[in-house]
């Protein structure tokens, strides 16, 4: 485990904690896209099928269970929790996320490393993760104002994949191994989708102003 990989995992974990904190502390999920949360739950369920077949380390197993558990818990809260669900911006969260699921699945059927159930679901999860933030970004753009915790959540979620890319570069030079093309391309796409958000995030931070996304 190198420092970039660790930073990636930690920012990912922090993003989830920030989101849970926001929902728990404010009893509100305003500004959060249920569509994106559902996509993430699907991403983790599809990717971590290997929980049943491979053991890597206690760290990996715990992290996988945390990602699956927290994403399902957030979806449950936004759909079922008596108070939290009232604040859901249903009318702004209209992205047709099923198209992302269908598109990622078709792509995984065409572009994968091996034609096995696990490999196809793995590739599907990588493609879907790359675009899973889109409903969230659209929701933020439509609502204009972004509350503090929601802004931090999206920032850490975006930073995580950028750290993974640095980790792949580091591993390429230190282990002479390239990893997978599918991860590299998808990771670059995923990070690029945040470029606009990162720009406004840093500007608001620099100017000590509230984060606002232009319509």
């Amino acid at each position: 485990m190198n420092i970039f990989r660790l930073a990636g995992d930690l920012t990912h974990l922090i993003s989830i904690l920030v989101l849970l904190l926001k929902i728990y502390a404010t009893k509100s999920c305003s500004g959060i896209s249920l569509k994106t949360q559902e996509l993430y739950a699907l991403v983790f369920l599809a990717r971590y099928l290997d929980l049943f077949t491979d053991f890597v380390s206690v760290y990996n197993t715990v992290m996988k269970l945390v990602f699956i558990g927290s994403s399902l818990a957030i979806v449950w809260c936004m759909r079922m929790h008596r108070i939290v669900k009232r604040s859901y911006n249903r009318e702004l969260d209209t992205f047709r996320h099923y198209f992302l699921v269908a598109g990622s699945f078709v792509l995984a059927l065409v572009v994968h490393e091996k034609f096995t159930l696990q490999e196809i679901f793995w590739a599907f999860s990588i493609y879907l993760e790359a675009v899973a933030i889109l409903p969230q970004l659209v929701l933020l753009q439509r609502s204009g104002n972004v509350d503090n915790l929601t802004g931090q959540y999206v920032f850490f979620l975006g930073a995580y994949r950028a750290f993974y890319i640095l980790n792949w570069i580091y591993r390429y030079f230190t282990e002479q191994r390239f990893g997978r093309w599918i991860s590299w391309i998808s990771g670059l796409v995923q990070t690029a989708l945040y470029a606009d958000f990162f720009y406004y995030y840093f500007m608001s931070w620099k100017n000590n102003a509230k984060l606002q996304l232009p319509a």
């Binding site: 990989r5 995992d9 990912h12 290997d50 491979d54 890597v56 380390s57 990996n60 992290m63 996988k64 990602f67 490393e113 993974y164 980790n167 792949w168 591993r171 191994r177 990893g179 997978r180 991860s183």
Partner: peptide, 10 residues
């Protein structure tokens, strides 16, 4: 092999 594929990543 799985190792070659960075199977230790999340």
């Amino acid at each position: 092999s799985p190792k070659e594929n960075f199977h230790d990543e999340l």
